[in-house]
Simulated assay, not measured.
Amino acid sequence: MTSRVLDGGLATHLETLGADLSDELWSARLLLEDPGLIRQVHSDYFAAGAEVATTASYQASLEGFTRRGLSVGEAEALIRKAVSLAVEARDTHGSGLVAASVGPYGAYLANGAEYTGDYDLDEDGLVAWHRPRWEILATSGADLLAVETVPSVVELRAVARLLQESPGTRAWVAVSCRDDGHLNDGTPIDEAAKLFADLPQVVAFGVNCTAPRFVPGLLERLSGKPAVAYPNSGERWDAAARRWEGLADPVEYGEAAAAWGAGYVGGCCRTTPEHIRQVRAHLPG
């Protein structure tokens, strides 16, 4: 099967280029302060062999920006800017797709809830929270949405409802998982995938922001739609010490990625252009 190569960690490469992301807006802050650096990251990933640029809208939200004193109109413009920066890099490169990142509610909370699904909103509340940004990104000029790092079945149900409201919007859906069979909230991944089985605009379902050692077992439990897989590098986050531990070799990552058999494959946290270069090198063709 031919795989489409995604990019790697946006924030990771921004930090490599000198960006300070110690802020609740994370990489989205640079949409305001240094958009050119975001465009450079997209360009670097295309040069490394990526065929898809994932936008810097993961942590961008109307609430997050207006809390900083921006108007709603200014916040909407910044979210659209995340897409235009990726489009500019793609057009300069000459080929590729732009996937507008739709981060989970937990990313807005900035308290680690995207790794637990421990939310203060129910399904209806999550639909209402996601809808404004969803509508902006769905009409932003991106080729598709990247709904990613979803930790719970409740949030997945909200996403499914939004997709049903917008049947012309293409998307992939990726969940964050605690082991080789379950989302972070404990839902079996095969049960979660059933929510999207009958939605034709969902081009792939799979996993991201998860330890790569869990990917083979997770993908074995999926059937039907093509899989998407872009886990973390293999390093482990020590929440108490607030640092990454361990090492992940890009060559080993590329070898592992080639064996996953996913239709869309790339990297998430702590992966770099070199990881994507190695993914490209190890994939057939």
Rank of each mutant, 00 (worst) to 15 (best):
V265H: 07
S95F: 12
N208T: 13
W172I: 14
G285M: 00
C177K: 10
L70H: 12
P151I: 01
D118H: 15
V215N: 00
P231R: 07
Y105Q: 05
A193T: 15
G112H: 04
A248K: 12
Q164V: 13
W237I: 04
D118E: 11
H275W: 07
R236I: 15
P250Q: 00
A227L: 06
G64E: 02
Y119F: 13
R178L: 14
T169A: 11
G8R: 01
T12I: 04
Q59C: 02
S223V: 01
L25G: 07
D143M: 02
I189H: 07
S22N: 14
D179N: 15
A99R: 06
L30G: 06
A100W: 03
A146R: 12
Y119I: 13
D118G: 03
A47G: 10
E135H: 02
Y230H: 09
E24T: 13
H130A: 01
V150Q: 00
W172K: 13
R157K: 15
L283R: 07
R67F: 08
D249K: 09
E220I: 03
S3N: 08
G69N: 00
A204D: 01
L30D: 01
E123L: 06
S152E: 01
R4K: 14
G261Y: 06
V5Y: 00
V5G: 02
A89S: 14
R67Q: 12
H275C: 02
R39W: 03
E255C: 12
H282V: 12
S43L: 09
E155K: 15
R39I: 06
V52I: 15
R68I: 11
W134L: 05
P167E: 02
S27V: 11
E165K: 13
A197M: 06
A239V: 15
S71A: 09
L70E: 07
G8A: 02
D185M: 07
W134R: 04
D143G: 14
Y108M: 12
A89W: 09
S152K: 04
W172S: 10
A262R: 13
I136M: 00
D7G: 14
A50I: 08
D34L: 04
T116G: 02
F205Y: 01
E255Q: 09
L163F: 09
L121T: 08
F214M: 10
N208H: 10
L17P: 07
L109T: 11
F196M: 05
L219W: 10
S166H: 06
V5D: 00
T149P: 05
Y105P: 14
F196H: 08
H93R: 10
V251G: 00
D143A: 06
H275L: 03
G8N: 06
I38M: 09
G224T: 06
H42M: 05
G267C: 08
E63L: 15
A86D: 01
W244M: 07
V154A: 10
D180M: 00
S223E: 10
T272H: 00
T66L: 03
G112F: 05
P188M: 00
A82L: 11
A256F: 02
C177G: 02
C209G: 05
V72I: 12
